[in-house]
Design a binder for these strands. Structure first.
Lengths: 225, 225
DNA sequence: TTTTGTGAACTAGTTCACAGCT
DNA sequence: AGCTGTGAACTAGTTCACAAAA
């Protein structure tokens, strides 16, 4: 029932797409849990949240047998498993480098706190930014402190919110300090060594993709859903 | 040489992945252009920016024959073509709904302006937010103004930066006003009718994917690149 | 009966490799 | 000689469909 039959070794590759969906499933389960739902089948989970039932089962099956045939999944139970799989059992400590508009907005975003992310600090080199905490009280420290804290394993993930020209240098610093997971908001491709996970959120690419769609689809196709 | 041999009809599906890469190619070409590079082969473009040469050629071939055999691509020429393909020939007008921290940070982000995006206004319903422009001077209007401006086709893309519970309502409003491209920063899945393009930037999913990677890869595999 | 977990089939996306043009 | 444009081969990702379990 608790299903820990076939846990894959960490060496086996699970795709990024699957990882992202696990996070989505966790959010769905949290919603269901709050609504008092006790068990859910992959089919009804898929119907409620516009997912694919077979894909949900396959994604989960990478990590064990969490379901009960004829019943489905116990919501609270699966939620616990997903939190463990996603490494959310203890707080995940996040540092944000770049205390400009974007860095401060991210630091104050309350959505992160919910799932156990702890924004430890913002980091910058500008003297007039240091010491002026964000509206929600996240402190702004000098990047030198970042190096020390990262080296002392006090940070799990670093968010890059500095202007493009500074980004690669900051990433190098983070990597040298032992950081192994980076979320990058600055445009352009950054280089990281193997064993370090880099995820990019490129706002210009997102907007230009939308613009591309508008430019292509100008004439509306009538027979479309 | 200018290559307009095989322009695909707008009905033909070009994948989102390809669209994103076109944006990346444009950025690369802008860099090369600024550096005074006149022509570039797909091979050297790939080497410089860590891309795949065949993929570059294939992506471009969807839209025409822009290259010259034995030479490569003329940088300025290809840049012009890409800007046209991405719909960036005239300014793209963007409205941001939600004038909180994130909305204001996005409004003031200077990277957008470069490639021809014009942030027309922020929109909100909170009376004490309306009329107080962002640091960079983007005005904050009432959402009623949004409805009017969108209906009058004064906005091309809308960015959603409101709290989760308000998001679907705001999207519905945008869609009813004739908006056909939406960039959503609020968590959770939103519903849009066919013919409307929705792109999600889900920060929680991004962070949890990184956490997943850390949780899996704890024991470092030595024989890895 | 219901629903999982999973091999098989299918679909999408990437990379190779080369004919043909400059 | 050098490089594009593209069919063919390959790889990754998704969906189907069903045997086995509760």
């Amino acid at each position: 029932m608790t299903g820990r039959n076939k846990p894959r070794s960490a060496a086996e590759q699970v795709s990024d797409l699957t990882a992202g969906r696990l996070s989505v499933y966790l959010r769905c389960l949290t919603t269901l849990d709050a609504a008092g739902v006790k068990t859910i089948s992959s089919r009804s989970l898929a119907e409620r949240f516009h997912l694919n039932a077979a894909q949900i089962r396959k994604d989960l099956a990478y990590f064990g047998e969490f379901g009960v045939r004829g019943v489905g999944y116990y919501v609270a139970d699966l939620k616990t498993h997903l939190r463990a799989i996603l490494g959310l059992e203890k707080p995940v400590r996040v540092g944000i480098i770049g205390a400009g508009n974007l860095g401060r907005a991210l630091a104050d975003y309350q959505g992160f706190r919910v799932e156990g992310f702890h924004i430890v600090a913002l980091f910058d080199t500008e003297p007039n930014r240091i010491g002026h905490p964000s509206r929600q009280g996240v402190p702004v420290r000098h990047v030198d402190d970042f190096t020390r804290m990262a080296a002392a394993q006090e940070l799990d993930i670093v968010v890059i919110a500095v202007p493009e020209p500074a980004a690669q240098g900051v990433v190098n610093l983070a990597v040298e300090s032992g950081i192994r997971a980076i979320l990058n908001f600055s445009p352009g491709a950054l280089q990281v060594p193997g064993g370090v996970k880099l995820k990019n959120v490129d706002l210009t690419v997102s907007l230009e993709s939308l613009s591309f769609f508008l430019a292509r689809g100008e004439q509306h196709v009538p027979g479309e859903t």
